[in-house]
Lab assay of single mutants.
Amino acid sequence: SKGEELFTGVVPILVELDGDVNGHKFSVSGEGEGDATYGKLTLKFICTTGKLPVPWPTLVTTLSYGVQCFSRYPDHMKQHDFFKSAMPEGYVQERTIFFKDDGNYKTRAEVKFEGDTLVNRIELKGIDFKEDGNILGHKLEYNYNSHNVYIMADKQKNGIKVNFKIRHNIEDGSVQLADHYQQNTPIGDGPVLLPDNHYLSTQSALSKDPNEKRDHMVLLEFVTAAGITHGMDELYK
């Protein structure tokens, strides 16, 4: 796709999030870079409003799984890469995230190029959380598991539907599940690639910047598309 050509090198990323969870309002600002050749993201996020009212790991899918245009699609799968094909005009990404036995996040993001920078601007609203639950009670460990993110075409809306389940580790050794339902639709009216069913395999590492006084998260992530085999004719070339 034409959009794919915008991702040949390292691309700067800007992320802006405004959130409200159970009436606790907050903002997060992030910057870093993405390299789609390797499916690599390096980002640093800062809570610009003081202390973040929710655990950082609960925002990873909104912040970095928010820029799935940096996923590495192998050559034989490039015609299934909706995310890059929607660029530079970008796409709207909407999600509902259900935390098992707790509340939910609803998010709406616009992901697009502004100049040479890929920008992810998000509004997040969280409701029905227990004040002493795993999320508002800050009981999650500061780490992140690997996940597969399942993608299918949504021809009606000229976009994709995505769903997956995140496993958050809790300090007591148990797990907090979070079910994600995602819809992506193009902002522009140019042609986009509608994929066959496949998935993104994601690995994320969270860390801290020892010199950063503000509440923050440093993230390194690798994302690769998989799940579609080479056609038989490919094998015999």
Rank of each mutant, 00 (worst) to 15 (best):
H24R: 12
F113L: 09
N104I: 15
I170S: 15
S201R: 11
N104S: 12
P186H: 04
V111E: 00
Y144S: 08
Y142F: 07
K213R: 13
F82I: 03
G159D: 11
K78Q: 12
N120Y: 02
D18G: 08
L136R: 09
G9R: 10
I97F: 00
H168P: 00
R167G: 15
R108G: 01
K213M: 11
K112M: 04
G137A: 08
V21L: 04
E16K: 13
G66C: 00
E94K: 08
D154E: 06
A86V: 09
N120K: 03
M87L: 13
T42N: 09
P74H: 15
F99S: 01
D35N: 08
F164V: 09
H147L: 03
E171V: 07
L235M: 05
D101N: 06
S204A: 09
L177I: 15
S71G: 12
F70L: 05
T42A: 13
N197D: 15
L193R: 08
T224I: 06
G3S: 12
K78R: 12
L6V: 06
N148Y: 07
E4A: 10
F7S: 03
N211D: 10
I228V: 10
E31D: 10
K139V: 04
K125R: 10
N104K: 11
I46F: 06
Y144L: 15
H216L: 00
T37S: 15
L206P: 03
S146C: 06
M217R: 01
V11A: 02
S29T: 15
N163G: 12
F7I: 04
Y105N: 01
E94A: 07
A178P: 01
E110A: 07
V192E: 07
S27T: 13
K125Q: 14
E114V: 10
H24Y: 03
G137V: 02
N22T: 01
K155E: 13
P191H: 11
F129C: 04
C47R: 01
H80Y: 14
I135T: 05
K165E: 13
F45L: 10
G137R: 10
K213T: 06
K208Q: 06
F7C: 10
N143A: 11
I127F: 14
T8I: 10
L6R: 14
Y142D: 04
G23C: 01
A226P: 13
H180Q: 09
V223A: 04
M217L: 08
L63P: 00
N163I: 09
I166M: 06
D196A: 14
H138P: 02
D116V: 07
Q203L: 14
F129S: 00
V175E: 11
L206M: 10
V218I: 14
L219P: 00
K100R: 10
R121C: 04
H216N: 04
T96S: 10
N158H: 04
T42P: 01
K84R: 02
L235R: 11
G23D: 03
L177R: 08
T62S: 15
L220V: 15
P53A: 02
D154N: 12
L52P: 02
P191L: 12
L6Q: 06
V10E: 04
E5K: 14
N134I: 05
I97V: 12
M232V: 14
K139R: 13
Y150F: 08
T42S: 15
Q182L: 00
R214C: 06
N134H: 04
D233N: 05
H230P: 15
K161T: 14
K165T: 11
T37P: 10
F98S: 14
E33G: 05
E171G: 12
E141D: 14
F83L: 10
D18H: 14
D179H: 09
I166V: 12
P195A: 06
S174C: 13
Q156P: 09
H147N: 12
V11L: 07
K40R: 12
L59I: 07
Q79P: 06
A226S: 07
L235P: 10
K100M: 06
G159C: 09
R167C: 13
D172V: 05
K130R: 12
K161M: 12
T107S: 14
Y144H: 05
L194M: 14
D233H: 10
L200R: 00
E141A: 10
D179N: 12
P186L: 05
G39D: 00
G39S: 02
P53S: 01
K155R: 13
N158D: 14
G190A: 03
Q93H: 02
F45Y: 13
K84T: 01
F26S: 01
K161N: 13
Y144D: 04
Y65N: 00
H147P: 01
F99I: 02
G231C: 13
D132G: 10
K100E: 10
K106Q: 13
L200Q: 04
Y181C: 11
N143T: 12
F99C: 01
K208E: 05
H216D: 00
T96I: 14
N211T: 14
E131K: 09
D233G: 11
S29P: 00
N22S: 05
F26V: 06
T224A: 11
I46T: 06
S207G: 08
V10A: 12
I13T: 02
G227V: 09
Q156H: 10
T61P: 15
H138Y: 07
F82L: 02
G50R: 01
D101V: 01
R95C: 01
E221G: 01
H76Q: 05
H168L: 08
H180Y: 04
V223E: 01
Y181H: 07
G23A: 02
D172H: 08
H168R: 01
E234D: 04
H198R: 01
G34D: 00
K25M: 08
S174G: 14
K2Q: 14
G126D: 00
S71C: 13
P210S: 07
N184Y: 01
D179Y: 09
Y73F: 03
T117K: 08
N197Y: 04
K78E: 05
H138L: 08
S207R: 09
D102G: 07
N145H: 12
G159S: 09
F164Y: 08
V92L: 06
L63M: 09
H80P: 02
T229S: 13
D116G: 13
K84M: 02
V149G: 03
P57S: 11
C69R: 00
L177P: 07
D128G: 15
V92A: 07
I166T: 11
E16D: 09
F45I: 03
T37I: 10
K157R: 14
L52M: 05
R121S: 05
E114A: 05
Y142C: 07
N104H: 15
E33A: 10
N211Y: 11
I46L: 07
C69S: 04
D75Y: 08
L200P: 01
D35G: 02
V11M: 05
G50S: 02
D196V: 11
N197S: 14
S146G: 12
E114K: 11
P12S: 01
H80L: 14
L206R: 00
Q183R: 14
Y142H: 08
D179G: 06
V67E: 05
I97T: 02
A205T: 15
G90A: 00
Y91F: 04
G66V: 00
H76Y: 13
D35H: 12
N163S: 08
K40M: 11
T229A: 10
K78M: 11
V60A: 03
E212K: 00
M232I: 13
N143H: 03
T49A: 04
H216R: 00
N197T: 05
I228D: 10
Y236C: 13
L219Q: 01
Q203R: 11
D172N: 11
E33K: 09
E123A: 08
Y38F: 15
D20G: 01
N197I: 09
P53T: 02
R214S: 03
M152R: 08
G227W: 10
T224N: 08
E94Q: 13
K213E: 14
S71I: 06
Q68H: 06
F83Y: 14
D102E: 13
L43M: 15
Y150C: 07
A226T: 13
N22I: 02
D101Y: 05
D35E: 09
N158Y: 06
D101A: 06
L59R: 01
H80Q: 10
P74T: 15
V28M: 01
A225D: 02
T61A: 14
L177V: 15
N148S: 07
M152I: 13
K78T: 09
E123V: 13
D18E: 15
K213N: 03
I127L: 15
